[in-house]
Every structure is written in C-alpha cells, then in structure tokens.
C-alpha cells in the first residue's frame, strides 16, 4: 500500500497491543520483588471482601501492580496468579485482552491521543503529529530516545465534545489543539 500524504493516518497503526514483543533482561524483570506486601496486601484483602469470588479481584490487582511498577511483567502476573489462586497462563490471557495494561515498560510519560471519527473531524491527527514531533518519538508506540515519552493513538476516550482529549499517564487533558502541544510537552520535560 503506497502511503498517501498525511502522516499517521496513512500507514499501519500501532497500538499498545500491536507493539512487537521485545525481551531484554530489563523486560524479563529479573529482579522482581513482590508487590502484595504490607499496605498493598491489605488493600487487596479489602478488595476481596467486595466480590463472591477471588477471581473478580483480578483486574483491580493488576491495576495495583501497574500503579506500583508502571507495567505488568511476567513475574508480576505469576505473583497475581499466586495470590488469587489462578494460573499464570490464565492471568496472562486476561492481561492480553485489555489495552490499558502495559506488557512492556513505557516512557515516563505515556501519551494517548484519541483519533476516532468525532475527534478526527476536529483535527486529532494534527495533534498526534505534533506530539510525535515535540517528543522526538520516532513512531507511534515507540519510546523517545530519552526514554521519557511514548505516544499512541487510542480509540474514543469518551470525551468527544472536548476534542481532542489527550491522556498523559492518569491526567486527562481536554480540547487539545496541535498548537498547544509544544507547551504541554515543554512543561513535562
């Protein structure tokens, strides 16, 4: 497919799900230390009282891992499996279904820009291009050379009237236009 002019919209798109798996020592998370100790263990125990099955605490437990470590490594999946009485394979099956769990380390700032149609007609692709340019990330899903930024396109963020919404880690920015991007990125550097 010859790429027409127009940047990210033209080529194949990368999402958190399609990134090619890499497995250097860092990504194998060889020095893994358990997450569910002390306060985090207590938090999980409290969560378990909310559901009639242990398995129901799986998504919340994975969120705790990601909050602590920034991503969900295989040893983390094994730990979650052990505390909830599941198998590591089962946990991996669930992790891979959901786009928000990072299966690889990501940049310090994980930037998600909505480009679905309602935002697309308002110029969302210009916002994506501006983020790639300002952060120095070579492509969608790739982390910038300084390790600080990963930029991806995402599907509808449920804030279409505030086009274009951008999520940077847990922060939700509304009505971002391409010309606002340099100051947003500048403030993070």
């Amino acid at each position: 497919m010859s790429a027409p002019a127009g940047g990210p919209s033209a080529g194949p798109r990368l999402t958190a799900l399609d990134r090619a798996p890499r497995a250097d020592a860092h990504e194998r998370d060889e020095n893994y230390q358990p997450v569910f100790v002390n306060a985090r263990r207590k938090e999980l125990d409290e969560l378990l009282t909310r559901y009639p099955t242990k398995m129901a605490a799986l998504l919340p437990a994975l969120w705790i891992v990601q909050e602590e470590r920034g991503w969900v490594s295989e040893p983390a999946m094994a730990e979650v499996a052990a505390v909830l009485g599941l198998t590591p394979a089962y946990v991996k099956g669930v992790v891979t279904f959901y786009t928000m769990y990072h299966q690889h380390p990501v940049g310090k700032y994980f930037v998600q820009v909505c480009t679905t149609s309602p935002c697309n007609v308002c110029g969302a692709e210009d916002v994506v291009r501006a983020f790639l340019k300002q952060t120095g990330a070579s492509d969608l899903g790739a982390t910038s050379p300084d390790g600080r930024f990963t930029v991806i396109e995402v599907e509808c963020l449920g804030a279409c009237g505030f086009a274009t919404p951008v999520m940077i880690n847990n922060e939700f920015l509304e009505s971002v236009s391409a010309d606002r991007v340099p100051s947003i990125v500048g403030a993070l550097k």
Binding site: T53, M55, A56, A57, L58, L59, P60, L62, W63, L84, V94, F97, Y98, T99, M100, Y101, E155, C156
Partner: peptide, 21 residues
Amino acid sequence: HKGAGAYICGEETALMNSLEG
C-alpha cells in the same frame, strides 16, 4: 470497579465476564 480499556466491555454480558476477572 475499574475497567482496563475495551469498548466491548460495555456489552452487558462482556461487562459481567470482565467484572468476574
């Protein structure tokens, strides 16, 4: 209960599966 990024979990039975872990 916090979801984890999947439009399909808005479908009622998918939501129930997701809630069950």
